[in-house]
Design a protein around this nucleic acid. Structure first.
Lengths: 245, 245
DNA sequence: TTATATATTGTATGAAATACATGAAGTTGA
DNA sequence: TCAACTTCATGTATTTCATACAATATATAA
């Protein structure tokens, strides 16, 4: 690689998109992390992410990364913050790994971070650059590459704010039929606090876009719960009214 | 400029920071726009912004732009969204102007947008690239360079959400002593709706960080109003409690 | 039949948001 | 000086929303 190239690349930072994919696994809020390949002796985990391609916009890059790392499509991702401190890429091991993986000389990287709540899948897609992907509880993270620990911390705060503004994300995460208890546990894990059972029923009913089905839970050793479903049309009507104000 | 350079610059986008500086001028919510120099026959307005420098982080770039365009320092700027569609730089006139102004071949630009509510100043600083800066009502904008109309629209929505979460921004905008009516009008313009006078007094008192002074308005042809001030210490105490939850 | 596990439901209380009108204090000008 | 005018300052009733709290219903298991 020639001197001129290196000069240009340091002057003009790369732009990447990183995705914080959150899910609830075994009653813990977890984030999907990619494990590095061992080829070049660097071990560790990082968020799924990629430099942006020439012809895609930021949202498209995020969708592509979601699909590459989980196989999921149609989950709306939310851009929540960009990270661009020059110090992001001062750790030699981090940069060493990335330069090997990308075959590029890496100076500075500005990354646009996205988040989504999504259904956890045992079978995550693999990528030539990673061994495997893992769901890891956000409270039990190892030291990650670059500033990815900070990004995840910011994402968890953002998702808590986002849930109240745009509750639909919760239903992208849940199965299409769910019980009140499943819904309540999801909120409890997102907010990280217990919610009163009776008050939660009231709140859920006041939403107006969660409707009962005729189906009941089966095969449980106690009284079975009713399944409810999310009604996208009613949701849309309610939220289009709100945004008109 | 050599072919290789151009190739590299198209592949790796530039990164810029744009600032949406909002203020209330003559009872209208206004945004600070830079008027282009006429040198190269391109007329128009754009947000104050700049490519990021090699050694500064995003927040520092935003502060620098604020200072360069208004002379103000210490106004906290909030990063609210990044814009990176390749189509941002498809307008030939926009790119022509920018390439002349920056002396760079411009392919794609990813911009990180910041916002602040700030005191309007008649005397804005000038920059070698701009003639002058103007406060222009957000409801009466001409077509701006790049996607700056979209960025401003997003900023106005963001500031409305932000005001409730972090009301301090309002007091960065107001003079250090203000009347209840001045404060109310500011909120009315940000929310774009009338607020009830009595209820507003109650709400203001409930904040706990707005304290009366002994000074009264002078020289008005009617009963004079009391001046109040923002108490940063009380504010800090209240908001540090909240964020501990 | 009894034990047990979870589902489902209502009421009372306090806090916050809203709707609404009048007297007070100052200036102006007949 | 007093009447007209302008803006300031203030309280109460109503509704809505958040919270705290416990008993009965329904299913399986032993």
């Amino acid at each position: 690689m020639e001197t001129q190239d290196i000069h240009v690349e340091i002057l003009y930072p790369h732009v990447s998109v990183d995705c914080v994919l959150l899910s609830v696994v075994e009653d813990k809020l977890c984030v999907l992390l990619a494990e590095l390949t061992r080829e070049n002796d660097v071990k560790g985990f990082k968020l799924p992410g990629s430099l942006i391609y020439e012809t895609e916009n930021l949202d498209q890059a995020a969708s592509r990364i979601l699909k590459e790392s989980t196989g999921l499509t149609r989950i709306p991702l939310k851009q929540f913050q960009s990270f661009g401190d020059p110090a992001r890429t001062t750790n030699k091991d981090d940069v060493h790994w990335l330069e090997n993986a990308s075959k590029l000389k890496v100076g500075r990287i500005v990354t646009v971070a996205y988040l989504a709540l999504c259904k956890a899948r045992k079978r995550t897609n693999t990528n030539e650059r990673y061994n495997t992907a893992h769901w890891i509880p956000v409270d039990e993270l190892p030291r990650l590459l670059f500033d990815h620990n900070d990004i995840i911390k910011a994402a968890v705060q953002a998702v808590r704010r986002w849930v109240d503004v745009e509750p639909k994300i919760v239903f992208d995460y849940l199965p299409s039929k769910f019980t009140v208890t499943e819904l309540r546990r999801t909120y409890e894990i997102i907010y990280d606090k217990k919610l009163d059972v009776r008050n939660f029923h009231k709140k859920m009913n006041s939403f107006g876009y969660i409707v009962p089905t005729n189906e009941m839970e089966e095969g449980v050793p106690h009284r079975s719960a009713r399944f409810y479903r999310f009604d996208p049309a009613k949701y849309k009507k309610i939220y289009s009214k709100l945004s008109n104000n």
